[in-house]
């Protein structure tokens, strides 16, 4: 009976122990969310800027062209 109580006490104490926290150099901020789709992996709208789905370079090129609308000297060439 005494042994049983001792074992129960030991087991109950282990429940109070803290879990050891170890820093991992592999784990960095911003790694948890991984389910977003890249902008260039979308079909372009029927009317609007055009690029091929999955073509990152094409998407970036048309974005850069579109940005020139913010340049008052170059926007007229679009």
């Amino acid at each position: 009976m005494r042994r049983l109580l001792l074992a129960a006490a030991v087991l109950s104490f282990t429940g109070c122990m803290e879990v050891e926290q170890v820093s991992s150099p592999d784990r960095q901020a911003g790694q948890t969310v991984r389910r977003d789709t890249a902008a260039w992996n979308n079909e372009p709208l029927a009317i609007g800027p055009k690029w091929k789905k999955g073509d990152r370079t094409g998407w970036e090129e048309q974005i850069k062209q579109r940005q020139l609308a913010q340049h008052e000297d170059r926007r007229i060439y679009q």
């Binding site: 979308n42 709208l45 048309q62 940005q67 340049h71």
Partner: peptide, 22 residues
């Protein structure tokens, strides 16, 4: 961005004070 456009705030800026993009 998924539509190949830039943020609305920058594209709507009347004086082109706010620039947005690459």
């Amino acid at each position: 961005l998924a539509e190949g456009k830039l943020p609305a705030c920058a594209e709507m800026c009347s004086t082109k004070a706010l620039l947005g993009g690459d």
